[in-house]
């Protein structure tokens, strides 16, 4: 009886296991293996691919850009999400404000890239500025900036597009956490003598900490994997390249399958700590 049940159980999970095995488990192992092979995966090259990547100037810029994404994108998105969660909690049109900020989550990065390329349109100073960003700064007397190609700002310009898309996520999750804090606790703190700053600092922040950690980890993982925005907005040109896009280039532009695999492995290694965090959290919840 039990054996028969087990067979039925295996039948239930079989389709999932076949798909996961064929499209995730096997390919990941294969990619790790091939990262030690040459461009066509035929000759073993040891760590050559990795050595190449960590010494190549433009690849180092790729890593720097991802770090920039990780810090700036994650930091600003979480911070803005927290502030907006606290503030929108105080007004009656909370639902509307949250919906407006959340909506970009629904659309594709591709569409968002078009939207933001359009925001960043640059015309020579003698012409009228048709991009919102340049129209705004020229109103204040500044010279128009070529947001996409100017290497001192373009990474941040891309990151802003990312923030525009993801703040809604941070806002909605943190806001839900905020609503989970019972009003009696805040009242108790108030009776205990806390002012609003004390309440934020000593009650809300510590109580929101677990949820802030979850949001941060999610955003960090996404910052490491960022691809579509960069692919459509700059294709990684003008020093804006990121790991995922560089891998795509190595694969389809340069035909370097060994190096492409090695980059993918580097991405995996960067994400593993957060994967472990997810697993630990999952185990703790059981």
């Amino acid at each position: 009886m039990r054996n028969r049940m087990q067979i039925v159980a295996w039948i239930y999970v079989l389709p999932a296991f076949i798909l996961l095995g064929a499209f995730l488990v096997y390919p990941v192992l294969r990619t790790v293996y091939w990262s030690f092979f040459g461009r066509n995966s035929e000759s073993y090259v040891g760590l050559d691919n990795y050595q190449y990547l960590f010494t190549q100037q433009d690849v180092l810029i790729v890593f720097r850009n991802n770090l920039l994404w990780l810090v700036v994108f994650t930091g600003v998105t979480v911070g803005l999400g927290l502030i907006l969660a606290v503030l929108t909690n105080l007004v009656r049109y909370e639902a509307v404000a949250k919906a407006v900020i959340f909506v970009p989550m629904a659309i594709s990065f591709t569409a968002a890239a078009v939207i933001w390329r359009f925001m960043y349109v640059w015309n020579p100073a003698s012409f009228e500025q048709t991009g919102v960003m340049n129209a705004v700064i020229t109103t204040f007397g500044a010279e128009p900036v070529s947001w996409i190609t100017n290497t001192s700002v373009n990474n941040y310009a891309l990151i802003v597009a990312g923030i525009w898309m993801w703040t809604g996520f941070a806002l909605v999750v943190i806001s839900a956490g905020l609503k989970g804090i019972s009003s009696e606790i805040l009242e108790a703190a108030r009776v205990d003598g806390a002012n609003e700053f004390h309440i934020f600092r000593h009650i809300l922040l510590p109580m929101l900490k677990p949820i802030l950690v979850v949001v941060t980890v999610t955003l960090v993982i996404n910052s490491l994997k960022v691809f579509d925005l960069v692919y459509v907005m700059t294709f990684g040109n003008f020093d804006t390249d990121v790991i995922a896009n560089r891998m795509f280039k190595e694969m389809f532009q340069f035909g370097q399958f060994g190096r492409a695999s090695a980059i993918a492995v580097i991405l995996l290694v960067a994400i593993v700590p957060f994967m472990l965090f997810n697993i630990r959290r999952f185990l703790a919840e059981r």
Partner: peptide, 23 residues
Amino acid sequence: WFLLVVALMVVPIQLTLIPVLRL
């Protein structure tokens, strides 16, 4: 098995592109 599934959730699909493409 389930733990493996949880781990696979955040695996970047970039790691699977080349082998799947060849498949």
